[in-house]
């Protein structure tokens, strides 16, 4: 190599194949790397939710009564509606990925927008649900402690065991907010990514040969969907 050569490798081969980064040999290698990377990331995500669910499992096995009682105060019907919304969104995503594989730009954009809209619908419904929960004083901490007798009129506040019961109810509520909150953060991240992808897709950046970003976003979106499928029975349908 001599100093007179152009140095920047990005400049050298950035666009010799559309979408191929300079450090990969070919499209197959790049796609394989992206896929493996996304699966490894999802493995991390499983352990992330897994840690919280392990804590949830320990307390649910211990405080089954309180968890069931608290769970009955959540809006199961909202949860079910949201499940339907999210599943449909996931289906739209699958259609978008399929369209991308065939290089159909118009369909990709349409289905991505539908996926995003359904995702936003989920978040709106979730927001309304949080508000309803708040109105019902289903918020751990002082709000709950000041109003618990509305929700649990049969509990005798003077009874020594009742304090522990109310703490356990709040513990359930905390897991409810943490798990659904983290899930919502994942939705927001997913929607942001898809907005960028939609713009790029509309500009024709993806072809039948190069569409891994859409493929990867699909994997991620299905994962977020699957997490919700686990959360629904765990949070809304606790029986003891």
């Amino acid at each position: 190599m001599t100093p007179s050569q152009p140095i920047d490798p990005h400049a050298l081969d950035r666009h010799h194949v559309q979408g191929l980064a300079h450090h990969f040999d070919d499209m197959d290698q790049q796609h394989e790397a992206a896929t493996l990377g996304m699966w490894a990331f999802l493995a991390t995500e499983v352990l992330f939710f897994g840690g919280a669910l392990a804590g949830y499992a320990v307390y649910r096995s211990r405080y089954g009564d309180a968890f069931a009682a608290a769970s009955h105060h959540l809006y199961l019907w909202i949860g079910v509606i949201n499940t339907a919304v999210l599943l449909t969104s996931s289906f739209m995503m699958a259609l978008a990925v399929n369209a991308a594989k065939h290089g159909n730009r118009k369909k990709v954009v349409t289905f991505l927008i539908l996926t995003i809209l359904l995702g936003l619908a989920f978040l709106c419904i979730k927001g309304i649900e949080y508000y309803l929960d708040y109105r019902e004083h289903l918020v751990p901490g002082s709000i709950f402690e000041a109003n618990w007798h509305e929700m649990f009129p049969h509990i005798d506040g003077a009874h020594p065991g009742s304090m522990m019961f109310l703490r356990q109810v709040q513990l359930f509520l905390m897991f409810y907010y943490i798990l659904t909150g983290i899930h919502a953060v994942h939705m927001i991240v997913g929607i942001s990514v898809m907005i960028v992808l939609t713009v790029k897709a509309a500009r024709g950046r993806y072809t039948a040969e190069y569409n891994s970003p859409i493929d990867m976003a699909g994997l991620y979106w299905h994962f977020v969907d699957v997490v919700w499928i686990f959360l629904l029975p765990l949070l809304y349908m606790v029986q003891h």
């Binding site: 490894a40 493995a43 991390t44 352990l47 992330f48 840690g51 919280a52 905390m174 943490i178």
Partner: peptide
């Protein structure tokens, strides 16, 4: 890294909460 670290992360979230 990818299998252990997320568990620490969520644990620390719980401590913070």
């Amino acid at each position: 890294f990818i299998l252990g670290t997320p568990v620490l992360a969520i644990t620390l979230v719980l401590v913070g909460v």
